[in-house]
Amino acid sequence: MSDPGSGVTTTNGSGQISPDMIGSGRIRRGEEVLQVTGLRTQFGTTVIHDNLDFSVRAGEVMGVVGGSGTGKSVLVRTIIGLNKPRAGRIVLFGEDVAALSSSQWRAMQSRWGVLFQDGALFSSLTVAQNIEVPMKEHSDLPPALRQELIEVKIAMVGLPPDAAHKFPAELSGGMRKRAGLARALALDADILFLDEPTAGLDPIGAANFDSLIGDLQRALGLTVVMVTHDLDSLYAICDRVSVLVDKRVKVGTIDELMREPDPWIQEYFGGPRGRAAANSAAKSEGRAGEIAAPEQLPPEPGA
C-alpha cells in the first residue's frame, strides 16, 4: 500500500519554528523525540542530577527507576517544565524547551500527556469534564465532537460509562488513574509521562493497568516515559529502562542492565523481587512476545 505522506520530510530541530509546526511536526518511529543533555538540578545545596544525559526514542516505552530520593519524579517534572534545571538542555520533538516562546510552549503542552500519581484529577469536575479540559484549552473542536471523543476516551481506558458523571472522590484509586490516563490522552499526545502509574494499586489492578498502557501504546503508537517502582511493570511493558544512580542515568534493556557492575542495579534486578518479576515475565513471554514482535524497534548501535 502506498503512502504519499512519506514524501514529506522530517522537520527536526532546524528550520523555521512556528507554533503550528510544533503541533504538527513529524517524528519518525525510532528517532529520538526527547534528548536531555548535561542536566543539573539542585534544591538548595542538594544536587539531584548532575551532568545527566537521557534520551527517549519515538514509539518506545522507557522505564525510569531508581532508589527513593534519586530524583525520578524530579526528572519528569523538569522535562515538562514544572521544575527549572540549573543547567543543561532539554530538546523535545527537536525543539529546545528553554528557547520556546509562550505560544510555542502552549503548543508543546498539547503534545504531551501527563499522568500524575493518583490521577491528579480536578476534584470539582466530573470525569467527563476533566477529560474535556485539555480539549477546550488546546483545540477548537466543536462541542458535539468533544462529547463523542470523551466517550471514545472513556471506553479506551476501560472505564464504565456511568463513571463519566462521577466526581473523582467517588471513584476507586484504579478508576481515578484510568480517568487521569484518559485526560492525559485527551489530545492524542505524542509522548506520555507516567509518574508511578501502578503505585497504590493492588497486584491485579496494577497488572491490568500495565496491560492497558501496553495496549494503548501499541494501538496509538505512543512514546511513553514511565517512572516506576514496580518491577513487574518494567518486565511487562518497558522496551528500555533508565536507572538513576550517582545523579546520572544508565540506560539499556533489562538484560543489558543486569550486566552493569553497579551494586544498586545488581541488587535491584538480582534481588528476590527482581528475580520473581523476571520469572513471572518469562512465563508469560510466549504470549507477550507474539504481540510485541511486529512492533519491535530496530536495534540501534550504541544504545
Partner: peptide
C-alpha cells in the same frame, strides 16, 4: 516507510 511507522506522530501542513 509505511504508515505504521509514523503512526500518530503526524506531519505535513494540514489535512
Amino acid at each position: 516507510m509505511s504508515a505504521a511507522e509514523d503512526l500518530g506522530l503526524g506531519s505535513g501542513p494540514a489535512s
